[in-house]
Simulated scan of single mutants.
Amino acid sequence: MEVASKKPSLPFLLMTLITLSADILVAQAPTPRRQVNGTLGGSVLLSVVPSPGRKVRTVEWSFGAGTGDTIQLAEFTRAGFERPNPKDRFQQRLEMHNATSLKIKALQLGDSGVYEARIKTTLATVEDQAFLLTVYEPVATPQIQSQLLASTPEGCNVTLQCRGSGKGNVSIFWGKGNPAQQLDPGRYQLSPDGRTLQLSLQPSSLNTTYTCTVSNPVDQKIISFDLQSICLSGGADASFSKPGYIVLTFFLLVLTLGTAVWCWRMNNKKSADPAATPTGPMEESLAEPQYADILRSPPEGNDQALRHLENNMERSPQKEHLITTVYDQIRRTPENTSEEVT
Rank of each mutant, 00 (worst) to 15 (best):
P274C: 10
Y245N: 04
F90Q: 08
P153N: 07
F63T: 07
N336G: 03
D293W: 11
Q91K: 15
T211D: 00
G280R: 15
S239A: 13
T196G: 02
L197N: 02
C156A: 08
K103F: 06
G110L: 15
L133T: 05
L257H: 03
T70S: 09
G301K: 15
L255R: 10
V26T: 07
T19D: 00
H308S: 15
E154L: 13
G80T: 10
T122P: 01
D303N: 11
A276K: 14
E95G: 07
G38C: 12
Q304A: 15
I294G: 00
N267Q: 09
K6T: 04
F173R: 15
K319P: 00
K242P: 01
Y115Q: 03
F76N: 06
L197C: 05
K120H: 01
N302V: 08
P153Q: 11
S151M: 09
F225Y: 12
L132H: 01
R307Y: 02
T77W: 03
I119T: 04
T325W: 05
L227A: 04
P52M: 13
T100S: 14
E95V: 11
G234C: 09
G110R: 15
L190M: 13
S200G: 13
G186K: 09
K221P: 02
R296C: 08
Q161P: 00
Q35P: 09
R89S: 08
P179E: 06
S224Y: 00
Q189D: 02
V135Q: 08
S338G: 05
P192M: 12
L13Y: 00
C212R: 07
V261T: 12
V341A: 13
S9C: 11
L132C: 02
R195T: 06
S191T: 06
R57Y: 03
L25P: 01
D69C: 12
S233D: 03
T134N: 07
S297H: 08
H321L: 14
R307K: 07
A150G: 02
I172C: 01
T67I: 11
G110W: 07
N85V: 10
V36Y: 05
F81A: 14
V170E: 01
Q181A: 13
A150P: 00
E320F: 12
I104W: 04
V135I: 15
V247I: 10
S21E: 05
P243V: 11
T16H: 00
D193V: 13
Q182S: 10
T152D: 04
L73M: 11
P281H: 05
E310Y: 11
A74Y: 06
R265Y: 04
V254S: 04
L190Q: 04
T19M: 11
L322V: 13
P192A: 15
V158E: 01
F63Q: 12
V44R: 14
P86D: 10
G80N: 04
Y210D: 00
V26N: 08
A260F: 14
M15W: 00
D328N: 11
A275C: 10
A130G: 03
Q161Y: 01
E310F: 14
P281E: 02
K7V: 02
L248W: 06
T279C: 12
P289T: 11
I24F: 08
Q108Y: 08
